[in-house]
Design a protein around this nucleic acid. Structure first.
Lengths: 258, 258
DNA sequence: ACCTAGCATTTGTCCGGACATTTGACCATC
DNA sequence: GATGGTCAAATGTCCGGACAAATGCTAGGT
């Protein structure tokens, strides 16, 4: 027999009331992290609702990252607060670069290099590590203005992709994804103030000593191995790196910023 | 009567098979954006499953951002591909700033200003707009080294928060959230190369002409109004702005970067 | 032409039930 | 102490059913 429901307008559904109640218990500390909740049947009896309604409520908590459910084990509290957070999202690592579509990469030189101390610190590797380095400049097609100088380091085993660089080609990480069993899982980006040295001022068309925005991007594959690092220098006035974060709810899965 | 299911190991659940089938139809273009799907009952009959199973399958598509469901209307295709994306997430706008916890903001001066042309361009407002500006320097507690100079502009109606600035206080946007009916919905961040002028070199303890990392953050409330803009300059070598993006699936809700 | 009531359609909520699968505890045996 | 079997408990999957709520369409009245 279906339980009669009070015909009160704007009353939330039963599953939401139950979810709110359980969230309150967790927030208050009466249900602690690591603790197993009563089973679905038990919760249903306790709150006078069906198991379906209980499961709907638990699904909400799961989406908020407060609990984890496992078949045969039970429902465990995993967090006290669901993590309200601000999210920046891009469709692809290429969109992360934010270069104008009418800009082109021009290959300057390439070859194998051994990371000295300074390079090792920049790349986040140990001194002596071998990389294949691709030096390039990105220019606007319209007026040929150089917007950045990029040193791109890839693992020596991926050096073959240099054949395709500099033409109407996709980004290097994408070439690597296409030709090898590699997939971008994480991108770490560092931005800091730099200064254009004498060796690069000419090709970039600026005075030596011009301030620059330095951007280091480290691409990590699924095997937690960094397979590409790009180090770019953008002369002042030619490039702004932008991002927008919007408020949202996270699932408490360790998604916080690196 | 319950339909007999083939006792084949590792076969996905019926709701997932149905979800995959519908995803395939959408990807192939046979179900187009804007098109309404057959109703839940009709889908159940067509695929020989219960309405519950249909709803589970549709819930998956909804979570992927491929469809939208509305009571009394139906289920509409909203996207052709679920948007694989890379996500950067922080818990709060304060975490976005990335200042070391042992750094302190020291108030230099404050007062109302009128945006001239250059300031208006920087703040993203019109020339002549009035702001309340708070000038400050952030230093490491340990050695007193200045890591940035910040000009923080707030709407004049929020000027009162200046009383609490510079002490063991939360960030300014948080003070505003506490005292007024304001809430951060979006933060836009621009990073670009700058240069430390003569007026700031002394207080910052660097030579004039030192390159700097300039960071502009615009805080927008729920009413789409920018209520705070902070403009910070970090001398080279003292600050790196870092972010990490991880691969994940978005819901195709227009979450792409600004 | 406009408005309103009624109705059909659709999704949302909730119920009871049954079986499948997974997990961990317990016990017997070696 | 290790191993394997059994069983209870728990969640996962799936079913049929019923009613609520929202929406859009249509017909009739003004």
């Amino acid at each position: 027999m279906r339980k009669e429901r009070e015909s009160r307008p704007a009353q939330p559904p039963r599953y939401r009331q139950l979810a709110d109640e359980l969230i309150g218990e967790i927030r208050a500390g009466r249900l602690r992290i690591g603790q197993t909740l009563p089973g679905e049947l038990e919760l249903g009896e306790a709150f006078g609702v069906s198991r379906h309604t209980v499961r709907e409520a638990l699904r909400m908590l799961e989406e908020l990252g407060l609990i984890a459910r496992q078949q045969g084990v039970g429902t465990v509290v995993t967090a006290r607060e669901s993590t309200e957070s601000y999210v920046h999202r891009v469709r692809s690592p290429e969109q992360l670069m934010q270069y104008p579509p009418d800009s082109r990469l021009a290959l300057l030189s390439s070859g194998e290099v051994v990371a000295n101390r300074a390079t090792a610190r920049l790349l986040g590797c140990t001194t002596g590590t071998r990389w294949f380095r691709i030096r390039s400049i990105r220019r606007l097609k319209a007026n040929g203005a150089a917007i950045c100088w990029s040193d791109i380091y890839v693992l020596p085993e991926y050096a073959g992709i240099v054949d395709a660089v500099g033409r109407r080609a996709p980004p290097i990480y994408e070439l690597i994804e296409q030709r090898f069993d590699e997939r971008v899982a994480t991108v770490n980006v560092d931005l800091f103030a730099g200064l254009i040295g004498e060796d690069r001022a000419g090709p970039l068309g600026v005075e030596p000593g011009t301030p620059s925005l330095s951007v280091v991007r480290r691409y990590t594959g699924r095997n937690r191995r960094v397979f590409e690092v790009s180090v770019s220098e953008h002369p002042a006035g030619r490039f702004t790196y932008s991002l927008e974060l919007r408020r949202g709810w996270g699932s408490g899965e360790g998604w916080t910023a690196g």
